[in-house]
Design a protein around this nucleic acid. Sequence first.
DNA 1: ACCTCCGGTTGAAAGGTTTCAACTTCCGGA
DNA 2: TCCGGAAGTTGAAACCTTTCAACCGGAGGT
Lengths: 329, 329
Amino acid sequence: MEDVARQAGVSLGTVSNVLNKPHMVSEKTREKVREAIQQLGFVPDRRARALAAGTSKTIGFVVIDLSNSFFLDMARGAEQEAQTAGFNVLLADSDMQVEKERVYMELFDEERVAGILLAPLPSPADDVVTSGRWGRDVVVLNSPVAEDRCSVIVDDEVGGYRAARHLIERGRRRLVFAGGPDTLAPVRNRRRGVERAVAETNGAVGLSFLKSSELQAPDGRKLGHRLAAMAAGERPDGIVAAADLLALGMIQAVLAETELRFPEDLSLIGYDDNRAAWDSVVPITTMAQPGTEMGRVGARLLIEEIRSGRTHRHEHVVLEPTLLVRESS
Amino acid sequence: MEDVARQAGVSLGTVSNVLNKPHMVSEKTREKVREAIQQLGFVPDRRARALAAGTSKTIGFVVIDLSNSFFLDMARGAEQEAQTAGFNVLLADSDMQVEKERVYMELFDEERVAGILLAPLPSPADDVVTSGRWGRDVVVLNSPVAEDRCSVIVDDEVGGYRAARHLIERGRRRLVFAGGPDTLAPVRNRRRGVERAVAETNGAVGLSFLKSSELQAPDGRKLGHRLAAMAAGERPDGIVAAADLLALGMIQAVLAETELRFPEDLSLIGYDDNRAAWDSVVPITTMAQPGTEMGRVGARLLIEEIRSGRTHRHEHVVLEPTLLVRESS
DNA sequence: ACCTCCGGTTGAAAGGTTTCAACTTCCGGA
DNA sequence: TCCGGAAGTTGAAACCTTTCAACCGGAGGT
């Protein structure tokens, strides 16, 4: 920057002004400086800038698992929103490991980013977030959190409810919820929503829970296998799966082992609108989670918090999933 | 840091030494300082550190498309390797937009990262990379590049060749390559590999190219449809698809429209080992791209370059894809 | 008793920017 | 002709570290 100043025949302060408050500099000087910058290939040093100014324009996003399109969508949403506010977002994939989550939180903390977006691991989330006593502003995505932070979550109970309602409206009455493990809060909540819908509908019965150990396609195939083995009388006619891959596996197994057709004989609805399930043989109706919007809202909240400083009041936004009707129902 | 020094009753320099060269500080002092750090919740400022030291320990990765598991694997590989060398990597998704690619390259440049890993957009790659005249070290992944940079690519011709060899060894003789558009270098090269394998095998014939406009599942379904319509005599018995999703679509269409079975009547091999195709009805044999390894090698090259400074000699590593036999062949 | 050497420790400079009070010019008005 | 004020520019302090030459005190050798 000193070189630039010398070459343009102005002072350091003026170069800085050209960079940050161009309107305060006369047209003539501005041009001279710009030219010098060009010629010298000067690239301002963000670190020094942030150091001197005491504020940074980049926010960090620590995300649990980028291979899940839901989280990738969040990242994209956050990025869009941040961009319009003049912020950049840097990504770090904690890859389902608490350890890495912590490391990256610390990295961003040391990096003095303006704020952190965190999509945490299910269980010990709160530990990491609260224990760290990060000086930085943090907003938490997709995980309930104590009062002293902003958060954005999506209502799983409503999702389960609406999924079941959809099946009921399609004339299904013998409903079952498929998923697991029950220790996962989202699974529990989605299931509860389904049960509520069943309970408030005349003539609907909730069949016993199709329990899976995880939510991947192979688990779905096992479930589909069980479904295929059932007598016609005991078989459900509507299934709410806790995840798309689970639904995908079920469809494959049922199609392979029986003559049943989707959706005529069996209606199925998945959850998440997972890209990995987009190319199922029969396209899966699903409760789409508003990933992009979560990212956007999260970023908005965070930037607000950054800007308003101590006067900020924490918010807890609850979003709702939306039904995406395709061919499995 | 000043507060820490005061509280521990030592000088600034000593605190710094505790942080960076603990062996140079007496046990007693070290403890005192550590305690003070603890009590005051002091978090060193990386920016200031890097500024003062003149070196940074974080490297940036600008990646074309994180929703493609191949690139995500690269990111993971790079991260692993970087970690063992004491570096951190920050991710930026250019999301297939040249504009964003440029913005992020600039961001990392201004951020004075130690170096940049770039998995660029297909065509104007070189422009961005070279035109920028980034002072920073850059290594390019998955894209050929001029002499003055390190790069890591994977040999598509060999991939096509091996895929075809695999089918030939399985007894297939009427081979076809499916994919497109032909303007994509990887598609062209894979195809050429297939042709070479056919040419050098007695009795093998290369059937006319099954051309698709893109490499997604719907394109595959169209191709599958054409396959289904063919008379038995003109139908291939072995297919090399330029991508897994294409293969997945073909399988779905063929299974739906004909009685043909994989692999008995038709052997099929995909390309990429794309996670999005892992859950195909019939698991797809594929040429897996060594994404993780590319990331690792790239990071290793980059760190070497960072460390060796001007004495560095650029390297161009060519990796090979590996066959993953599953059930479609 | 004196000298060397060495492990520890210190203080100040340096790194690249922003900020801001103080300064200079120049213009219009009295 | 002089004055007040706006517009533009400057220089130095500040931001938070690392680095390194210089310093200090004590152990070991003569």
